[in-house]
Nucleic acid binder design. Structure first.
Lengths: 226, 226
DNA sequence: AAGTCATGTGACTAGAAGGTCACATTATAA
DNA sequence: TTATAATGTGACCTTCTAGTCACATGACTT
């Protein structure tokens, strides 16, 4: 986490540095992000940089922190359409709202997604906690869905979590890849065509998960007996 | 492509260099792969390296070439179980056989997958041709499936291609991520649990795509009218 | 043996990386 | 005004990078 010296800085100066850092990580990922460039672009000296942060990782961890806080705030404002909704509808809403958030903070989201999903595995030890949160949240969702009778009770929870995780990563990666070629992310995301494609991706997962569990388990058992 | 000097080398020496290069790209990706390390580990001099290859990209392009050739050869040996099979069964077979290939050449597959799927977008201009091949093959598959009546004719082909591409990338990424923590990739891949998970991923996509097209299109139209 | 040409070599270049440190500047308190 | 503490600075360090080049070695020809 940043040193006290950084937190004592006037807010404007903090924001400049953070903005520059966000763009740097978004463009280059973790490994290729350059502290020299961050220092240049934000108009501070090399010495100051290391008086504000422990090292490069420290800066990025601060971004993760910021991302979490901003996202929580964003979601707190946008209440789900209905209080007692179907789990899949809720998941759909969550993904969609998550993408709206990304369209409001495109560079921050891009930086975090890129590093966590792509470079992540090499720095897994540092970022693994961040991932576990998502996994846990999904697990609770599935368990609740089973309780509600929306998902077949014979479903192996971990398997379903894995499917949803892979799926939601796939959507993030798709959006990340496509959006990098677009200059206006917000406009692109709101295009009917983009929305249609994302809906389709979600629909395929939902439909596959919702109705086929028992069928799938049955198929697997038949396979095993062969 | 490698220079003539490289091709004149005794096969054993060629293989050593290629093996070292494969492991380097598999471990570090394109950007962070180091020619110095390749040179050290394969016991040749820096000068020789640049007498064999134009530059770092040249080495990797040669690996792509190798990957394509080996994979084609591998698939040529393994004939599909039945000649006139359902498109989704064929897709399933293709993905599975592709993974068997990966288990035989784990490092090569890892190197290619990593660079094409992760670093790929930054070097898109070089690797885009490689990607187009896959896209085209998928497009033909879908079109054939429509002709055969296996997929609803009202399906937007490009959309289905996108879904299948995202899907198959997701599976590759999943396998890549998981397998990096496993020392014995081949054994891991053949574990019933691993196979079950991959089957499940495939099943979700297949089920979502196969039966829901017209339903989905109908849903989308209803959404639009709102 | 002399000449030719392909191949091998490692010190070298220029640049960039992350990080340090002795010193300069500024702000606060007495 | 002076003393003290906090903050700012850029030259510098080491280590790495991709790539070059003048030269050495070895093989084949005449």
């Amino acid at each position: 986490m940043p040193k006290q010296t950084f937190l004592n800085l006037p807010e404007e100066k903090q924001n400049t540095i953070i903005d520059v850092a966000i763009n740097e990580f978004a463009e280059y990922g973790f490994e290729s992000a350059s502290t020299n460039r961050i220092v240049e672009k934000s108009g501070i000296s090399k010495g100051s940089f290391y008086q504000y942060f422990e090292d490069k990782l420290d800066v990025f961890m601060h971004l993760i922190d910021l991302f979490g806080k901003e996202k929580t705030e964003f979601f707190a404002d946008k209440h789900p359409p209905s209080a007692n909704m179907d789990t899949f509808t809720y998941f759909h809403w969550m993904i969609k709202t998550g993408m709206e958030f990304e369209s409001v903070h495109p560079h921050l989201a891009q930086a975090i997604t890129r590093v966590l999903l792509r470079d992540g595995m090499y720095y897994g030890k540092y970022f693994i906690e961040e991932r576990k949160k998502t996994t846990l949240a999904l697990k609770m969702m599935i368990e609740q869905a089973i309780e509600r009778g929306e998902v077949d009770p014979s479903v192996e929870v971990d398997l379903a979590v894995m499917v949803m995780e892979t799926w939601s990563n796939a959507i993030s990666t798709y959006v990340l890849n496509e959006s990098m070629q677009e200059e206006d992310f917000m406009t692109w995301l709101r295009l009917p065509k983009t929305q249609e494609r994302i809906d389709k991706l979600l629909y395929v997962m939902e439909y596959g998960l919702r109705n086929t569990e028992s069928q799938f388990i049955a198929d697997a058992e038949i396979e095993e007996k062969k």
